[in-house]
């Protein structure tokens, strides 16, 4: 099989792209592939970031009228790494941990889209940095348990849970006070 691009060299790279169930095949040689920007297997030439930046551009109105283009979009940038929101929409990635604060007002709609409607972390907490957070979360869990016990009129268990909550809260306040 010869290369579809140059028609000279043998085709050694065979791409099958499936987009919305539609399958297209391309057969090209390595040289043309490099020129075309198609890359070797294992490299994501169309990555999640391209898709993501598509999602991020939702603020730009489609078919912008000439009058609107006089309007200069506000340029907010991260004080720590200097990333602007415009740059972020292009590369789809943040430059530092501070970016999450800088762009926080724009972040939740994006996170909802990407994470099935979720915006708040509920997984692992780092041991050292998160000791206080860990306690706070335990207390919240116990509170909701206590409520359940009360609803089911299991008052003994509810009282036990209340004592547990007190111990935990004492512990966290004494640690905080030191």
């Amino acid at each position: 099989m010869t290369c579809q691009e140059c028609g000279e060299r043998p085709a050694t790279l065979h791409f099958t792209k499936i987009i919305n169930g539609e399958k297209t095949e391309t057969h090209i040689c390595e040289k043309c592939a490099k020129e075309k920007g198609e890359v070797e297997p294992g490299t994501n030439h169309f990555s999640i970031h391209n898709l993501l930046s598509g999602l991020l551009n939702f603020e730009t109105p489609i078919g912008e009228s000439p009058a609107q283009s006089y309007y200069k979009p506000e340029i907010s940038h991260c004080p720590k790494c200097g990333l602007t929101y415009q740059q972020f929409t292009k590369i789809g990635r943040f430059g530092c941990s501070e970016c999450y604060k800088t762009f926080s007002d724009k972040l939740d709609p994006i996170l909802k889209k990407v994470h099935g409607g979720n915006t708040v972390h509920s997984g692992k907490i780092p041991k050292r940095a998160g000791a206080a957070i860990e306690i706070e979360r335990k207390v919240q869990n116990l509170r909701s348990k206590m409520k359940e016990y009360i609803e089911h009129e299991e008052f003994e268990k509810a009282a036990e849970t209340r004592d547990l909550i007190r111990t935990l809260e004492d512990k966290s306040s004494s640690e905080g006070g030191e």
């Binding site: 999640i48 990635r93 530092c96 941990s97 999450y100 972040l107 996170l111 972390h121 780092p126």
Partner: peptide, 19 residues
């Protein structure tokens, strides 16, 4: 680690944030 109480582990790409 870069960690935030509400957003979890902070990653460069928002598709990885949280856990």
């Amino acid at each position: 680690y870069a960690f935030d109480e509400r957003k979890g582990y902070l990653t460069s790409c928002p598709t990885n944030v949280g856990t």
